[in-house]
Design a protein around this nucleic acid. Structure first.
Lengths: 206, 206
DNA sequence: CTTGAAACTATACATAGGTGTCGGTTATAA
DNA sequence: TTATAACCGACACCTATGTATAGTTTCAAG
């Protein structure tokens, strides 16, 4: 006879499972999450779950892919307004994001990509390097657009500034995750970042 | 009868064990290192090893303490020379350090302090927050010394700039550990950092 | 409505790896 | 010589993985 369920159903179920997995990863991180934890959260049996995913690395990578689908390119190319205002706004928005890091996959991602298994098998996991390059390229593109419009007068290469910004944000997020926003003084640091960017870009309409 | 060995011997043995542990942690990180791995590296039996250390968290914390003893405060208060030259030199030195991250405890430390067990028991592990505060204070002190000498004309609070520097360096180190120095463009980023610091501090003798 | 196959449950299993302890052995300082 | 600290390695225990099995539910084609 015909298959029991439609392809759509399978897809939907799979998505449910990934959502459950995501909840667990957010709460427990990667290292301390077991397959059983995810099965319990999803309310599914061992056998059924293993028919969807091979192992926990597989589950996690699928969660990341699923997550990426949802993320809109808010860092995307600048709209019609001022590029500087756009960047400034983005930096200011980061503050709210950083204050809710415990509700994100930050911990799980950091653990996963630090694990030596990953670092020693970079080739098999192009995800993170691709992600880094894409993010850098997006920021770089925004800066170049500003230059094209005559809005910025830059002292450094756009790609350098983009990566500088990424390094800073990554460091700030991890430190703040571990130590809390009071100790790292998030707001002040972001203000310092804006100051730096302003010096680097010399925006005409500061 | 009297104890079999001298106190000195015990201390020395303990140090040997910590050195072996350190080698393993450097090579395998924290998550993928087991007690057995360390015992094998040290060439000691389970029982003997457990008479020195209670569990792997204990071993790791002791490694960190041992490591701290060795580290001299090279970021220490500025000598008699120019504070700006001192800071500049320090940043330049970081490049070499960053290129050999795989021979350090960076991975192990990151893994250890990320593990949710740690994050959810901050109180029990004052190490990392103390370390952060101390480092920030050291940089802050250097900057303030520059101000006192009339060498710097700062736009931002010294504590903010210190933490800004730490965030950036932490982010750069982790990204570079994972992606390699070509991809993150370490040299250029450090140049950008120097540019930023120069704008922030306005050193009189650039 | 029947029915057959897919999806699922619950549980058992073999494997693997790690933990911390314990009784016995070795080596040395008194 | 001898008591005792330092050491050894087997052991019992636990947790997790991935597979396998038998039996049950569900759904859609016929």
């Amino acid at each position: 006879m015909a298959p029991k369920v439609s392809e759509d159903y399978k897809q939907a179920r799979r998505r449910e499972l990934l959502q459950a997995a995501k909840r667990v990863f957010i709460q427990k991180g990667f290292v301390h999450t077991s397959m059983q934890d995810i099965m319990d959260e999803a309310g599914i049996s061992r056998g059924a779950f293993y028919s969807y995913f091979d192992n926990i690395d597989h589950v996690f990578m699928e969660v990341l892919k699923y997550e990426d689908q949802q993320i809109i390119q808010f860092l995307a190319p600048p709209a019609e307004g001022s590029v500087w205002q756009h960047l400034k706004r983005w930096v200011e928005d980061q503050q709210g994001y950083i204050e809710s890091l415990h509700d994100t996959l930050l911990l799980a991602k950091s653990e996963f990509f630090l694990s030596s298994l990953y670092v020693k098998n970079k080739e098999n996991f192009p995800y993170i390097s691709d992600r880094y390059d894409e993010t850098a390229a997006a920021i770089e593109e925004a800066i170049e657009e500003g230059i094209r419009r005559g809005e910025f007068r830059t002292q450094l290469r756009p790609g350098t500034m983009a990566r500088f910004l990424i390094s800073f944000m990554n460091g700030l997020m991890l430190d703040t995750y571990q130590l809390g926003r009071e100790r790292t003084r998030v707001e002040e640091q972001l203000a310092a970042l804006l100051f730096s960017l302003e010096q680097m870009l010399s925006p005409v309409q500061g």
